[in-house]
């Protein structure tokens, strides 16, 4: 099948602003994914095309892109679903470094702000810290995050204010707030109760729709909001 692939290109050393470039490519709709097309452009048409990718199997979270107007992982998005005209652009709302590569520093700063690690100052046990299956199930959904930034960069609240910690940071806070072994829930809730925390969520659901791991992100955000309210009452 012949594909008309449009890519939003930008070279900071040459271009004043990003521009679209088209590539005519042959693709197998049954097996090819958007990442295959990007490789074909880079290998056969223009070696300067710049994009991130690592595992190519939807686990590392490197190749989240704006594909046909929605944030998706290039390695998971099948050509069959997209049709003959495909547009690929960098993740919205993040500064573009070159072509499809965006600056993720702000995204990871927000992630670090919520202390995404286990905090427990009790005596270190000889063996693992045990947990019941029920307690483990409480935060199972939010353990799936691969930090691809598809959610945060699809959020209109984040586009409006970059300081908003964003859905990904809240998901990763949720993963520890509801972990029975963790002791820093109050500190995380304090951070997320601030100006740039959960109250910026407008339940728009772009994050939930964009998540390549199918995490119920809006639900996680609202559970954190509820925890903040319950802690205060």
């Amino acid at each position: 099948m012949q594909i008309d692939l449009r890519i939003l290109r930008y070279d900071p050393e040459r271009d004043a602003k990003p521009h679209w470039e088209s590539y005519g490519l042959e693709a197998d709709p049954k097996t090819d994914r958007v990442l295959d097309l990007l490789h074909r452009v880079k290998h056969d048409h223009d070696g300067s095309l710049t994009f991130r990718r690592s595992c190519g199997h939807g686990i590392c979270g490197s190749d989240a892109l704006l594909i046909n107007g929605r944030n998706r992982l290039a390695c998971k998005e099948r050509i069959e679903k997209l049709g003959r005209r495909i547009s690929v652009a960098p993740l919205p709302g993040l500064p573009v470094v070159k072509d499809l590569v965006v600056d993720m520093d702000g995204f990871f700063d927000s992630y670090r702000r919520v202390m995404p690690f286990l905090v427990n100052d009790g005596p270190v046990p000889e063996r693992e810290r045990r947990q019941s299956p029920e307690d483990r199930a409480r935060y199972d959904d939010t353990t799936k995050c691969i930090l691809c930034a598809a959610c945060t960069s699809s959020c209109p609240s984040f586009w409006a204010k970059e300081a908003y910690v964003g859905p990904a940071a809240i998901v990763n806070a949720h993963r520890f707030i509801f972990d029975s072994r963790d002791e820093a829930a109050d500190e995380r809730l304090e951070i997320l109760a601030g100006d740039d925390g959960v109250w910026r969520c407008r339940t728009i659901f772009n994050c939930t729709d964009a998540c390549p791991r199918g995490i119920h992100i809006t639900q996680a955000i609202l559970e954190v909001s509820s925890a903040i309210v319950e802690r205060r009452t």
Partner: peptide
């Protein structure tokens, strides 16, 4: 951005 992003029912709502 708002117009370019093709959100679903949640974004329309």
């Amino acid at each position: 951005m708002m117009v370019r992003y093709r959100g679903g029912e949640g974004m329309l709502a």
